[in-house]
């Protein structure tokens, strides 16, 4: 593989097992496989959307990549360099290239630190800059995210949610990272400010060529902002593909149900459509189902789904899907779940 087509981020077989401890002796009584063999790539300057419901392991995946928590198994490569093998100073250097924006801008900013402190801290940590140099840098960054230099000496309490999230983005940009992991960056914001922050991320990607791993549960926003989407369910990626393809012609029954559950702002369309209402709750990750992890809630489940975990299969549009419908039974072979299949298994 040449350096040209090498992806920016390469994640293979990533796993995280959390022990469940009980009693005075804190003995491990069970294990939760929060992330169970996740593999994907993020290209240079690409926005990859990672969607799933609570408990699907999407946020854990983001944290594992940055090694904010240590993976149990698997590999994470940034530009060919194995992030898991790094120690000390080398790890710190690599972390400049990968930054994070958290969900809640009300708790991710220190209430006692001014904007200059919050955004300028990375310069002090990594480059030992003087205060004046730092302030100049901070003003530049604030301009990048559409905020004026008069905010420099203000505290987070003086800002609205949208402005706080801009400050958090400015801090993430400080060290000119190649990848920003944004974990639910807009879900704590009001609807009229959500689009401001989404547009900011799109601008930065275009202007600075930063790649994003955009983690969110809101598929309509992820679909809009991302080039490709990966759908997670119970610790595993069940489908990856071109955002438009996954959204318009999902290959996995779970993606189909997830997309169908989004209410659209059009009363007539809401009356007309048949919504797929999933049965039951997601199973506990403590005790995941055998075979395909989705089979307990799947409308199309077959015999084989109870016993065999499906392998990722290529779809006709260059994505992959992990579902037996594509290899056994109706043999979709990577084509979308068709209307006829939906009718027969009703």
């Amino acid at each position: 593989m040449t350096a040209e087509d090498q992806p920016l981020l390469r994640v293979r077989g990533l796993e995280k097992v959390f022990p469940v401890k009980k009693g005075i002796m804190r003995r491990t009584v069970a294990q939760v496989r929060a992330v169970d063999g996740v593999s994907f790539d993020v290209g240079k300057g690409e926005i990859l959307g990672l969607v799933g419901e609570s408990g699907s392991g999407k946020s854990t995946t983001g944290r594992l990549i940055l090694r904010l928590i240590e993976p149990t198994a698997g590999s994470v490569e940034l530009e060919g360099q194995d992030v898991r093998a790094l120690r000390g100073e080398e790890l710190r250097k690599t972390r400049r290239d990968m930054q994070m924006v958290f969900q809640d801008p009300y708790s991710s900013l220190d209430p006692l630190a001014t904007v200059a402190d919050v955004v300028g801290e990375p310069f002090q940590v990594h480059f030992k800059m003087t205060r004046k140099e730092r302030d100049n840098k901070v003003v530049e960054l604030l301009e990048q995210v559409g905020m004026g230099s008069h905010h420099l000496r203000r505290f987070p309490a003086a800002f609205s949610g949208g402005q706080r999230q801009r400050i958090a983005v400015a801090r993430a940009l400080a060290l000119e990272p190649k990848l920003i992991i944004a974990d639910e960056p807009v879900s704590a914001l009001d609807m009229s400010t959500q689009s401001q922050v989404v547009n900011l991320l799109l601008d930065l990607q275009e202007r600075l060529g930063v790649a994003f791993l955009f983690i969110a549960h809101d598929l309509s926003i992820v679909h809009h902002a991302s080039r490709r989407i990966a759908v997670m369910y119970l610790g595993a990626i069940v489908e990856v593909g071109d955002a438009e393809e996954v959204y318009a012609r999902p290959r996995h029954p779970y993606s189909e149900a997830l997309i169908s559950a989004i209410p659209v702002p059009d009363p007539q369309a809401e009356r007309d459509r048949t919504r797929i209402v999933l049965k039951g709750d997601p199973p506990s990750p403590l005790n995941p189902p055998s075979g395909c992890r989705y089979h307990t809630r799947c409308a199309y489940a077959m015999e084989i789904c109870n016993t065999v975990d499906p392998e990722p299969t290529p779809t006709v549009n260059g994505g992959t899907v992990s579902c037996h419908l594509h290899t056994s039974g109706p043999m979709l072979n990577g084509r979308p779940i068709s209307q006829s299949l939906r009718n027969t298994s009703g």
Binding site: S160, S192, I221, H224, A243, D266
Partner: peptide, 20 residues
């Protein structure tokens, strides 16, 4: 207008300037 459904994919979302 600020909902993602009201613009084509990849375009900038429309927004209301300022805050409540």
């Amino acid at each position: 207008d600020s909902m993602p459904q009201s613009v084509a994919k990849g375009e900038r979302l429309r927004m209301i300037a300022g805050t409540v």
